[in-house]
Design a binder for these strands. Structure first.
Ligand SMILES: [Mn+2]
Ligand SMILES: [Mn+2]
Ligand SMILES: [Mn+2]
Ligand SMILES: [Mn+2]
Lengths: 248, 248
DNA sequence: CAGAAAAGTTAGTACGTACTAAAATACGGT
DNA sequence: ACCGTATTTTAGTACGTACTAACTTTTCTG
């Protein structure tokens, strides 16, 4: 017999970092950094489509598809995910709760770094990507309190509440607006710092008012008025800018 | 052949969390959270004695001695540690540098949590123990800047500089002071939150002036004047209080 | 609808980290 | 010098995570 160990008692979940939650009540549910990131990625892919595909996940996480398959089975075993063999993966309610808490941590951290520690908005994502796994609920709530419980991160993405509610809005893309239309920038999609910096330098940030002046054919530039300046940006870049259409 | 992989090219250091340092220059040296904690523990044990013993390490890290043996071999292979078989382990210069940077991160984080996020001094250690592995140099320096580059953490321990210098002072213990002697509290050793809270509630904190009023025999209580109140504390607790003896 | 391409899974391996059990070494005291 | 205890190391195992290669299933496409 291999010692009465891996029977019922959870053996301390190797590799998982205890964040001081995981109270006795019901399930401790200590997840590794990797598992958490998978769940977040599945959440995002589910939002921008249907069930999350293995390859799409592999792509986003920069991990081989075979490895993703394996992890998905582990997550399924933990009841965090439901995979329809060969047809994609969805979060269970439990998995979604974990993902939303992680997203809350991520976005509050990003907000705090920008508001209190002088970080640029294009420079916070990677830092948050690591800290989100280490920060205790106590720390997160302290940051949120200091910031006055913000509801959106520096990129305009909504911050889930501590109880896991999120105000996801369906927004148009700047690239899809008609010529002549006005809109308010709600946020910028995309985690690429270069894109964020580029847009930021041109004044395209959450809250700013924009107006489409013209659009060139053959995927040509879109000319937008931002503040009192005109900017010509590519449809590719514009596609990442989410806007809230506005009356005249 | 098993594919030309684990030959010379470091294969991305599995399990290590990239903190955005690890520049191309010379060695990337991406360490896991565990390796970092071992190095820190070795540093501390070396300070309070000679070479760090395997059992002492196992004890401090709450890990089986056999596992420690294994990790020490890995750290030795990485050139961070030098083990004299059966006779303890010391840090190499490289290992000490890693340890000091980690300690810097830890102590700046603790300082920041207390100064800016309303944490109690007995409540920051565990948080820092995790964040120290995730925080980038950029974040650490931003925190330090905001605090005005503190030189000691909330427990009075010195903070190494960014270049790895530390001002370790040999201090007396409160338990060792003579009756009638006055001293300034320099810091409190010990990571046990209960001890910290206990001492804090009695006004025993870094910077405070104390005077030994009496000491009972048979390991009896030590009576100390703190501010205008007298406190009777056990020699065990007093042993953790480091003091700087003072003229009259 | 057949065949090819795309998407996904399995098999086999590696590595970091941890554990227990057992063996080796060191050391203090007689 | 010898013995028993304490310390340390080795051996063998487990598990999470990742990889490549090979296979299977699904989905397009002509
Ligand atoms: Mn982000
Ligand atoms: Mn992450
Ligand atoms: Mn500490
Ligand atoms: Mn640590």
């Amino acid at each position: 017999m291999t010692a009465a160990r891996a029977v019922t008692t959870t053996p301390k979940r190797r590799g998982a970092v205890s964040r001081g939650d995981g109270q006795p009540p019901s399930a401790p549910l200590e997840l590794t950094l990797q598992a958490e990131d998978y769940l977040k990625a599945i959440y995002e892919l589910e939002r921008e489509g249907d069930a999350a595909g293995t390859n799409a996940l592999a792509d986003r996480l920069d991990i081989a598809a075979a490895s993703v398959s394996g992890m998905l089975q582990r997550l399924a075993r933990l009841g965090l995910v439901k995979t329809e063999r060969y047809h994609g993966t969805r979060l269970t309610a439990a998995g979604r709760a974990v993902a939303l808490q992680l997203i809350r941590r991520h976005r509050i951290i990003e907000s705090y770094l920008v508001a209190r520690l002088g970080f640029a908005w294009d420079d916070v994502h990677d830092e948050a990507e690591r800290l989100e796994h280490a920060a205790s609920p106590q720390l997160i709530e302290a940051m949120a309190r200091v910031l006055g419980n913000p509801t959106a991160d520096p990129h305009g993405a909504p911050i889930p509440t501590a109880s896991g509610e999120i105000a996801e809005r369906e927004l148009a893309s700047l690239a899809a607006l008609d010529v002549g239309a006005s809109a308010r920038v709600a946020g910028v999609n995309g985690r690429d710092p270069r894109l964020l910096r580029y847009l930021g330098e041109r004044g395209i940030r959450p809250g700013v008012k924009v107006r489409i002046e013209s659009r060139e054919p053959f995927d040509g530039p879109i000319v937008v008025t931002v503040g009192r300046e005109k900017q010509a940006i590519s449809p590719g870049a514009a596609a990442h800018v989410r806007v809230e259409p506005k009356a005249p």
